[in-house]
């Protein structure tokens, strides 16, 4: 029973944070057809912002989160402008593959600039908020985790409301569904793309502050979240927002179960094994639909 509660709580916490990182990747893929490999470095950047503000400057946690959001947003916009925007509409290239490589290159740059500035040392980021609460016979949950889940869920809800209710959000969804129709209706497409990538990166940046506290801030702190987010987006079918959220919690559940019942080290390999099986059985992801060749 304690195992069950532990798994349940861990699922919600992990799933929420995965969702926060992965939803950005899905959003970018759905709109730009770019699998953004720089999202991991946004998480990493968020971690360092959290460390810098909370430890060195001693600012309030809320400010740290807001700063991470803003800085990652700018980084995301910059990334889009150098690695995706110049390739838009270029003929004779495999756009998805080329941007896979260019965003990867940006990640390389960001990560190694961080290495040059901060060095390879792992930095402890203090929890945004301290203390734990005993939920059920020795199963503890930290306030930090509760806040993390709450902020993640809150941000995902806000994103949902933004996409379905606001002018810009509806423009973004219109672009995702039919780019030429959206253009005809006067959506300024060129400006949608950096905005979307900035927004997605900002979410990853916020996740980075929490993850930094969970683990460390270090130049390669983004690698693991990136790999986990990749698993989530494949599992959820690239480009499907609801699919991604389900997948985030499903992956969280698998990982929590493996961690609690077997060992934490095995959770990622087992996830990858699950993904291999999923891709072999459903070559286009769980929710994705095959598009057949037309000649």
């Amino acid at each position: 029973m304690t195992d069950l509660v532990a798994i349940l709580i861990s699922t919600i916490v992990l799933g929420s944070i995965y969702g926060l990182v992965a939803i950005g990747m899905t959003l970018i893929y759905g709109i730009l057809r770019v699998l953004d490999m720089s999202q991991g470095s946004m998480v990493m950047a968020g971690g360092f912002v959290g460390w810098g503000l909370l430890v060195s400057a001693g600012t309030s946690p809320l400010l740290a989160l807001a700063a991470a959001f803003a800085i990652a947003f700018l980084l995301g916009v910059a990334t889009q402008l150098v690695s995706v925007q110049p390739l838009l509409g270029r003929s004779g290239i495999d756009f998805e593959m080329i941007t896979f490589i260019t965003t990867f290159a940006v990640a390389m740059v960001i990560q190694n600039v961080a290495l040059e500035i901060f060095g390879p040392r792992q930095r402890d980021v203090p929890p945004v908020i301290g203390g734990t609460v005993d939920v059920y016979r020795g199963v503890n949950i930290s306030y930090q985790s509760i806040l993390m889940a709450a902020v993640s869920i809150g941000l995902m809800l806000m994103l949902g409301i933004f996409l379905t209710r606001s002018r810009y959000g509806m423009a973004i969804r219109a672009v995702a569904q039919d780019i030429s129709a959206a253009r005809l209706m006067g959506v300024p497409i060129r400006w949608m793309f950096p905005l979307v990538m900035g927004l997605a990166s900002a979410l990853a940046g916020v996740a980075g502050v929490f993850l930094g506290a969970q683990l460390f801030a270090s130049p390669n702190a983004g690698d693991l979240p990136l790999l986990e987010a990749l698993i989530v987006v494949i599992f959820g079918g690239l480009g499907s927002l609801p699919g991604t959220i389900y997948a985030a919690y499903a992956i969280g559940l698998i990982q929590s179960t493996v961690s609690v019942l077997i060992a934490t080290t095995w959770s990622l390999p087992i996830l990858y094994a699950v993904i291999l099986v999923v891709l072999v059985l459903r070559p286009h992801g769980l929710a994705g639909r095959p598009s057949e060749a037309r000649l």
Partner: peptide, 28 residues
Amino acid sequence: FPTLRLFGIYTSLLTFSFAQVIQFVIIN
């Protein structure tokens, strides 16, 4: 065999995952 069933970005994702699994298995 599994890779050649896939197209586009999924090919990269599958092969990338494959390499990760092999590395994790060796490390652990």
